[in-house]
Design a protein around this nucleic acid. Structure first.
Lengths: 167, 167
DNA sequence: CTTGACTTTGACGTCGGTGTCAAGGGTTAG
DNA sequence: CTAACCCTTGACACCGACGTCAAAGTCAAG
């Protein structure tokens, strides 16, 4: 199929497809007229790209997933390089969440000091006490395993196990 | 004082100061030689800008705070327009947090399906069950007021009270 | 007078993932 | 043949908050 059909099938612009190729993420054979020619494997690759982008990954992040698919794997995330990207992204998301929670606390603090009276709505009033709620969320004691959510400093990649299968 | 001194005092580049002026956020008298002249009130304004930027506000968001200061208020956030910005930002931050928590859940899900074995670290393993932990965080019953954190759909600006003092 | 530090305006670059336009060539139905 | 699409490459626009460079003016010290 040509670029227009691929774009229509995946739901992406032709501009995006050419950009992906320019970034070295996908490639295309060329017909005698110079037109790009794609097959079903390319559909799979582009679907993978869009799926990962929708999950917040950058285009660069998708690279190991695509290589993983090209290597014959059914899932792009089943290779150790992909898992490493998953882990890094997870740590990034955790860091963002913590930063936002701190910002939220700042905001409510500013808001209450700006408004001496009781003006905050129920949701706004919740300042979750320095994300302490998150750490002890749903568990009377810490260290129950599933109740920690975000660790104090989010090690996430620095646990005792030697991380089997990293690049 | 001139632009270099103001920049040094607040800890900002002269480029930034000219940009703020270009955006209509601050203004400066001009000396006979065309140089910008600032006073202490300008220092206060720029400090306010930097403070708000550091809190995640956009430059445009700082406008009502600066007007509030120029109107003679001690705090830039004490005017109703500023409070409205606070509230909007708070709602945005809440939305971002919820989006990130959803993304986090997606990530751990992908990670576990990619890795059939037990590879997740303690922090990674926590999927906080569709942010249910957040809703009931720290409270045995809901409706206790301080325990809700993020509402289901974050109304935040649509409570029963008629919001006294909005623009 | 010269040097050097400061100032002015103006304009381009950054980053990511495209949208959009331009100018041209290919292909197909009528 | 022509209209109407499809395709090609190339290049500018965008967003936000500036960084950086250029060319030129100002001013104080030596």
């Amino acid at each position: 199929m040509r670029i227009g059909e691929l774009a229509a099938r995946v739901g992406v612009s032709t501009r995006a497809l050419r950009y992906y190729e320019q970034q070295g993420l996908i490639s295309a054979r060329r017909g005698v007229n110079g037109y790009r020619e794609y097959d079903e494997a390319d559909v799979r690759l582009v679907v993978e790209i869009r799926s990962l982008l929708a999950s917040g990954f950058s285009l660069e992040d998708t690279r190991p997933f695509l290589e993983c698919l090209r290597a014959g794997n059914e899932a792009g995330g089943s290779c150790p390089e992909s898992v490493a990207v998953y882990r890094r992204k997870l740590a990034e998301v955790d860091a963002e969440i913590r930063a936002l929670i701190r910002r939220r606390a700042e905001l409510t603090e500013q808001l209450t000091s700006a408004r001496p009276g009781c003006v905050l709505s129920q949701e706004e009033r919740n300042d979750h006490a320095d994300d302490g709620e998150l750490r002890r969320a749903g568990a009377p004691r810490r260290q129950t395993g599933t109740g920690r959510f975000l660790g104090g400093v989010v090690p996430a990649l620095q646990d005792d196990r030697p991380d089997p299968g990293a690049a």
